[in-house]
């Protein structure tokens, strides 16, 4: 039994929540279509395609065309979900997302699977570590980085039902701790308080939320009380909550399975320096590519596990001025 299971958390890949949401949404929205790019099982778009084959279209291994097709569907009044791995969606089809989807404000939802280093053995080519940076700079884009399968389900539903325009939903491959349940709130653009504390705030997204909870437990045993925030919406970012955390806890550590440069932590820093500057530090991938390995060993090797987060937190609070 690993530390997550000891905690009572079931291990479920967040991509499952994406698939479940598509299946659920398909019942309510006859105008919903899904466009895949040959990774139907892997992205869990299969939950949709198996039940609604007439509304699923495979573009083949051709992401640029797939992105354009999704936008084209919107000219016929459809809501199109385009799903593939994050490296191919946000990377290969970047200009298509920028010009055809965002500039046109097309009602397209992008399911970015395989976000983060925890993709594991496939290695760097398939580990998306840059798409928070590239997607958040696009005007009109909404960017979700949910923490687990259930939150991914809610984010996907919100993308279709609450937002008319482009949305990117980033989720992962490996099983992650289920830290939310059906009753947990999910409000677009509103960061979720996971655990309270006043010595520092750890703002995390994706699988790093669970790691941050574990880090906070270690810190608590050393009489350091960390607040933990689940920033499931990187854009539009919750300025109010971030400013409040800076003011109330005096230090902010961010944690993401993504390059530090330009990522969620950078987005948080942009708010902190403009509202209430406090010492900050960043847990993330530091300007290097991923590599093959098991998810847990990669998190550790890249300094993304709960112990590394706790260490950085301890060093960070030494820099607090009050």
């Amino acid at each position: 039994m690993n530390i997550y299971e000891k905690h009572g958390w079931a291990m479920v890949p967040s991509r499952n929540g994406f698939g479940e949401a598509l299946r659920e949404l398909a019942e309510r929205h006859p105008e919903l279509v899904v466009i895949g790019a040959d990774l139907t099982d892997s992205t869990r778009a299969s939950y949709f395609s198996e039940n609604f084959p007439e509304r699923f279209f495979n573009a083949g291994i051709a992401e640029q065309n797939a992105a354009g097709m999704a936008a084209g569907m919107s000219l016929a009044g459809k809501i199109a979900v385009f799903s593939t791995y994050g490296v191919f969606a946000a990377g290969r089809a970047y200009d298509q997302i920028r010009t055809t989807i965002c500039y046109s404000n097309a009602n397209v939802k992008i399911g970015g699977a395989h976000g983060g280093i925890s993709v594991g053995p496939d290695g760097a080519t398939h580990q998306a570590l840059e798409e928070i940076a590239t997607m958040r700079v696009l005007p009109r884009m909404t960017l979700f980085t949910p923490a687990d399968a259930e939150e991914t389900r809610k984010a996907t539903i919100a993308a279709v039902e609450e937002i008319k325009g482009p949305v990117y939903i980033r989720f992962g491959r490996a099983p992650v701790p289920s830290i939310t349940d059906r009753d947990t709130s999910f409000e677009v653009g509103r960061a979720r308080l996971v655990r309270d504390g006043d010595d520092l705030t750890i703002i995390a997204c994706g699988s790093m939320v669970a790691e941050s909870i574990l880090a906070a437990e270690i810190l608590e045993s050393e009489n350091i009380f960390a607040r933990v925030i689940d920033l499931h919406t990187v854009k539009p970012i919750d300025r109010e909550t971030i400013e409040k955390c800076a003011r109330e806890t005096g230090a902010i550590l961010t944690a993401e399975e993504h390059q530090i440069a330009g990522g969620m932590g950078s987005a948080v820093a942009e708010v902190v320096v403009a509202t209430h500057p406090v010492p900050m530090d960043f847990v993330g991938v530091n300007d290097r590519f991923g590599e093959s390995g098991e998810p847990a060993e990669l998190l550790k090797a890249f300094g993304l596990d709960y112990r590394s987060i706790a260490e950085k937190a301890k060093n960070l609070i030494k820099r607090k001025t009050v």
């Binding site: 279509v33 466009i35 354009g68 097709m69 084209g72 569907m73 000219l75 298509q96």
Partner: peptide, 12 residues
């Protein structure tokens, strides 16, 4: 990019 858009619209 336009032909891909047209393909999506025509497909729908």
């Amino acid at each position: 990019q336009g032909l891909s858009i047209a393909v999506g619209t025509a497909l729908a």
